[in-house]
Amino acid sequence: MEKVIERMMEVRWHSRAGQGAVTAAETLAATALREGKHVQAFPEFGPERMGAPLRAFNRISPRPIRIHGVVEEANVVIVVDSSLLGAVPVDANVAPDGVILSNTTKSVAEVRRILTLNGQKLACLDATQIAVDCFGMQKPNTPMLGAIARVTGLVALDTLLVEVEEIFSKKFPPKVVEGNIKAVQRAYQEVSYE
């Protein structure tokens, strides 16, 4: 699936502090940079408390990005921690043609009942299970990136795989690197949306 981003896309991540969403946002930005795009990645400003709901943001654009500050209306919402569904307003301030992608064990139909959507696309993926299967850790971020590539086209799968390999090779043994790559590929295949 090849999509071309022609305008600036704004991404909002919902996670809990300590789950690595800021790092995931930076990985997404680095992948987009690899494709020659202009990028931003930033956390919700302020002090961090472990486990507290946290937001992070991306801007990805074919042209230089001049705007700074919190995303007013997101084109893409990513929910990394499924316990946030219904707990924080992940469905607020999403562009009408936007998409919400959630890590969850629930089906798209079940999640749709929790959220209030006005025409936005909804995509679901059990990213935590994929992570456990592929590299034995409850870290859903890497599979979420794979799903983002599929659902949004913000980055291409090939580029993402290169980026993930490079980043993980710096810190982890080959087995973990392979597991993460596999997780990205599996998520890309398994994500369901309508």
């Binding site: 940079l33 202009h38 990028v39 931003q40 990645a41 930033f42 956390p43 400003f45 700074h68 500050g69």
Partner: peptide
């Protein structure tokens, strides 16, 4: 440089 808006924002 503006706090957080630039200090904590990663850009290319």
């Amino acid at each position: 440089l503006d706090g957080f808006l630039l200090t904590h924002t990663s850009e290319n």
